[in-house]
């Protein structure tokens, strides 16, 4: 129930943000479309802690700040490699058993890896992530698993056990 409520509040905020017209007619349109969307989502049975991750919301800023810093660092690194003459890359593929136990945590991990320039998650299955890295050093960073631990801590602080998660880790 609180996920449905969270979804409706989120949709309403989105409407108010994007519409920019504040008159009774537009409020009515907004209420109608928010309720319709929420009803469709509820009917599809996709309103749960995966689609509306309320429990992670409070801890997201810390993780996002850390991820932003990582992305900035690797952007500089990859940009330097692109501009430096000659071959300065050493493409590497590696696998890592991912730490986060829930599907949501694993998705956050895989997306964070892909978002960081220099590493791309090519496959994620049964808790095993296949990663393509631009350089050997990037692949070693993945193998050491700093980002993995961060996502695990982020997931743990959220505190809700996921009921979708498949065993495999």
């Amino acid at each position: 129930m609180r996920y449905l409520l969270g979804l409706i509040v989120g949709l309403a905020a989105l409407w108010l943000l994007l519409s920019g017209h504040y008159s009774p007619l537009f409020y009515a349109f907004g209420t109608g479309s928010c309720l319709l969307t929420a009803w469709i989502c509820w009917r599809m049975r996709i309103v749960d802690n995966e689609t509306v991750p309320l429990h992670l919301l409070a801890h997201a800023p810390v993780y996002i700040a850390w991820l932003g810093w990582e992305i900035a660092k690797s952007n500089g690194d990859v940009a330097r490699r692109i501009l430096s003459p000659g071959r300065s890359i050493s493409p590497t593929m590696t696998t890592r058993r991912v730490g986060p136990a829930t599907d949501l945590g694993r998705t956050i991990y895989a997306n964070s890896v892909t978002l960081t320039p220099g590493t791309v998650t090519v496959g994620l299955r049964d808790g095993l992530a296949e990663v393509h890295a631009l350089t050997d050093a990037n692949a070693r960073d993945i193998e050491e698993g700093d980002m993995d631990r961060r996502v695990q801590a982020f997931e743990r602080r959220g505190g809700v056990r996921d009921d979708h998660s498949h065993d495999g880790g």
């Binding site: 992305i71 900035a72 952007n75 990859v78 940009a79 692109i82 890359i89 493409p91 892909t114 978002l115 960081t116 320039p117 220099g118 590493t119 791309v120 090519v122 393509h132 631009l134």
Partner: peptide, 17 residues
């Protein structure tokens, strides 16, 4: 970049930074 997979890394620079 020499091949498709390495090009993706270059692509993610324009997409993030």
């Amino acid at each position: 970049m020499p091949d498709f997979y390495t090009r993706m890394h270059a692509a993610s620079i324009t997409d993030t930074a």
